[in-house]
């Protein structure tokens, strides 16, 4: 059952993508009409603020972390093993 469903989605990738895009767009549209009772700060009052926040956060986390990794932190898989062998 699960496999069939996933297979179906994979066979109709275009449709799935369209579906996802339409959900994103409708989210933004609905946000224009949502009642705002107790806004915590400015961002809560701007429609679509959290969408931009989410997207930016995602991009920021990926790019910043990968940059940190490649610049400073990445080592080969057997880094600590090879250290032991040196002895």
């Amino acid at each position: 059952m699960i496999i069939k469903f996933i297979q179906f989605c994979r066979d109709h990738m275009k449709m799935v993508k369209m579906f996802c895009w339409s959900i994103l767009l409708s989210l933004m549209a609905v946000d224009l009409f949502i009642p705002r009772h107790h806004p915590h700060f400015l961002g809560d009052e701007i429609p679509g603020f959290w969408a931009i926040f989410g997207f930016t956060a995602c991009a920021l986390i990926i790019i910043l972390s990968k940059w940190l990794g490649h610049k400073f932190l990445f080592r080969p898989d057997d880094y600590y093993d090879s250290m032991e062998k040196e002895k």
Binding site: C20, M28, W50, G54, C58, D77
Partner: peptide, 26 residues
């Protein structure tokens, strides 16, 4: 929903950057 679904958008747009590398982070 906004935060999560737009994070998902970001993930699929940047998925190439995330492809696993056989490395460890110090």
């Amino acid at each position: 929903y906004q935060i999560l679904l737009f994070t998902m958008l970001g993930f699929f747009l940047l998925v190439k950057k995330l492809s696993p590398e056989p490395l460890i982070g110090l």
